[in-house]
Amino acid sequence: MKKKNRITLIIMLLLITSITINAQTGKTEQDETTKAKEWIGSLSLNDRAKEERLSQVVATHLIAVKEWHNSHPASTVPAGINPLDGKPLSELHRQIIADSAMPSKVHDDLMSGLRKDLNEQQVALVLDKYTVGKVAFTMKGYQAIVPEMTATETAEIQKLLEKAREQAVDYKSMKEISAIFEIYKTQAEQYLNNNGRNWRQMYADYTKKIKAEKEAAKKTKTP
């Protein structure tokens, strides 16, 4: 009798677990589908069939990224060192490594699905939704820091930031997305250094200027 009760309890626990997992999966799909529809709706395509196709493409990608992220925590990557600097891998580094192992087909399906119905400018607008407009925000920062930034410099840095944006859409958290952008920001700063600029000095000058402006503003407000 005790054995029978134990088996019944195990079955009940399995059923409860299954129901919980299914409920969580259903919520994930609903959340990501809603987000996808909002993003595609913001394009004002005025074409219901096209909007439905695109929403499905984006939702499928969002769900795949989230499910991969949730099933591949940082703990699945052994602790070790970063071969570039010899420092221990951080929790964020390990999570990025885990997420970067997601099959490339997930990304390829997103990009081909978007480009099937959208032009490159519209594709960029969708990718901006994923990355909360970090391309424009970061470019604005460079334009403020680099004196008389040339058209060639602007084009090169824009290209790097757009690469960062496309790569970053396959990562779940904003910390990861920001870390991906840091990779390309480092490349942008190296590019400036290699072409007659001194990034460290420009950044120091900009910081000094901002600090002086804040101090001046304080003095103006003081009675």
Rank of each mutant, 00 (worst) to 15 (best):
40 I>E: 06
166 E>C: 09
115 R>A: 03
210 I>K: 08
211 K>C: 03
115 R>V: 03
40 I>W: 06
191 Y>V: 05
84 L>N: 11
167 Q>N: 12
220 T>V: 15
40 I>A: 05
126 V>W: 03
4 K>E: 13
120 E>P: 03
208 K>Q: 10
3 K>W: 05
216 A>I: 04
109 D>S: 10
193 N>H: 03
21 I>F: 15
14 L>T: 10
209 K>Q: 10
3 K>G: 04
23 A>Y: 13
182 E>A: 13
57 V>N: 05
212 A>C: 05
190 Q>G: 10
144 A>N: 14
137 F>E: 10
165 R>W: 09
121 Q>H: 12
156 E>N: 15
58 V>G: 04
125 L>M: 14
66 K>V: 12
168 A>W: 00
215 E>T: 07
12 M>P: 03
202 M>F: 13
73 P>Y: 07
155 A>E: 15
140 K>Q: 13
16 I>Q: 08
64 A>I: 07
108 D>W: 12
17 T>Q: 12
45 L>Q: 01
142 Y>V: 08
223 P>C: 04
64 A>Y: 09
14 L>P: 08
150 T>R: 03
113 G>Y: 02
12 M>H: 10
41 G>T: 12
210 I>Q: 09
27 K>V: 12
64 A>T: 11
47 D>M: 01
207 T>W: 07
75 S>V: 05
81 I>K: 14
89 L>A: 00
118 L>Q: 06
28 T>Y: 15
83 P>W: 02
91 E>L: 10
121 Q>M: 14
68 W>T: 06
144 A>Q: 14
127 L>H: 01
173 S>M: 07
219 K>H: 05
128 D>S: 14
41 G>N: 14
152 T>V: 15
145 I>H: 07
155 A>G: 06
32 E>L: 12
110 L>W: 06
2 K>T: 13
15 L>A: 11
180 I>D: 07
86 G>T: 02
205 D>C: 00
35 K>Y: 11
143 Q>Y: 01
215 E>Q: 15
171 Y>A: 02
2 K>C: 13
67 E>R: 13
11 I>H: 09
186 T>L: 14
223 P>V: 08
85 D>G: 01
99 D>V: 10
111 M>E: 08
78 P>D: 01
138 T>Y: 02
7 I>T: 11
52 E>G: 13
88 P>S: 02
179 A>C: 05
109 D>L: 10
62 L>W: 02
86 G>F: 04
77 V>P: 00
94 R>A: 02
206 Y>C: 00
185 K>V: 13
114 L>E: 05
